[in-house]
Amino acid sequence: MASISMGQGLLVAGLLFAIGLIGVLARRNIIFILLSLEVMANAAGMAFVVAGYRWGQADGQIIFLLILTMAAAEVSVGLALALQLYRRFKTLDVDAASRMRG
């Protein structure tokens, strides 16, 4: 198996992170925002895996497991919020929930 250089791995991770961020900022549908957040979390996880691979250490994969757990928890909260949003505003548009305007 051809080895992957760390620069390439981090580049992919960075690209994934940027895509996720753009998704969070550009999308109005809360489901897609949650998906984009998952992408960002996985981008970070990938950076850890690449780094662990580079140094031959298991730490990177351990952190990746941690990130998976965190993402699962985050999704459960995020979906609960999505349900509440829909129940109150009959829409999935996050911009509808802007009553905290200063």
């Binding site: 969070v24 925002i33 996050v94 911009d95 929930a97 802007s98 305007r101 200063g102």
Partner: peptide
């Protein structure tokens, strides 16, 4: 004015 209430 910066407190728009918009999550994004």
């Amino acid at each position: 004015d910066t407190q728009t209430g918009k999550l994004r």
